[in-house]
């Protein structure tokens, strides 16, 4: 696999799984407004995943759906941060939302500066929507940062958040989140999957696998 395809798959898998996780709030969020907001964010993330898979798929000879659904769980390149199910825990949800959006911003900025015009172009397109996710995440963190359970969630998820980025970009994340005064920790590297990914994969592919090869 080319380095480019691998990098695109990593980001696509993150966006896909987080999109799937965020969509779990549809219908049961603390406010109707947040049902709508999280559902919107989930749709954007899945839209981004699809665009990234399409680009990677051109190199790999696969469709976006094949890449999203037809790989075995251990083949996903996702970061540990996006895998766990947090519903109905709003504190962890907001902590992850904020940490992920901050890390993702750093990653997207780097991609926008890429020499590869296709990658840079797609990153710029994605970034236009991510701006709103960041505003949403910042608003919620600001409101709840004084809650001890949100602080605990930030500390707990911090090693996984560092794992969203490669070695080269991690110092930037530490710098941007300096105000939160998070501890010095070892990052949880990408690709080390928890059982929660396999569980999610079972669910997200259950209809698709029920009639193999069918069109849905």
């Amino acid at each position: 696999m080319s380095e480019r395809a691998q990098q695109l798959l990593e980001i696509a898998d993150d966006e896909l799984l987080l999109g799937w996780r965020n969509s779990e709030w549809t219908g049961i969020a603390p406010f109707l407004e947040e049902d709508v907001a999280f559902s919107s964010i989930a749709q954007n993330e899945i839209g981004h995943a699809r665009a990234l898979y399409e680009l990677a798929g051109r190199d790999l000879g696969k469709t976006a759906d094949e890449l999203a659904f037809d790989r075995a769980p251990e083949e996903y390149r996702s970061a540990a941060l996006v895998e766990p199910r947090f519903v109905p825990d709003w504190a962890r949800t907001i902590a992850r939302h904020y940490l992920y959006e901050t890390a993702d911003q750093i990653r997207i900025e780097a991609l926008k500066a890429s020499d590869d015009a296709e990658v840079a172009g797609l990153a710029a397109k994605i970034d236009r929507e991510e701006v709103y996710h960041r505003m949403h995440a910042e608003m919620w963190l600001e409101r709840l940062v004084g809650e001890p359970r949100v602080r605990e969630a930030l500390v707990e998820l911090w090693p996984k958040a560092l794992g969203v980025l490669g070695d080269d970009l991690r110092p930037l994340l530490r710098e941007r989140l300096a105000a939160l005064d998070l501890p010095e920790v070892e990052p949880v590297e990408r690709g080390k999957h928890s059982g929660e990914l396999a569980e999610l994969w079972e669910k997200m592919t259950v209809v698709r696998r029920s009639v193999p090869g069918a069109t849905w």
Partner: peptide, 10 residues
């Protein structure tokens, strides 16, 4: 969570 394609999911 069980939608079988990205389009259907969206």
């Amino acid at each position: 969570l069980r939608a079988p394609t990205l389009q259907r999911k969206l």
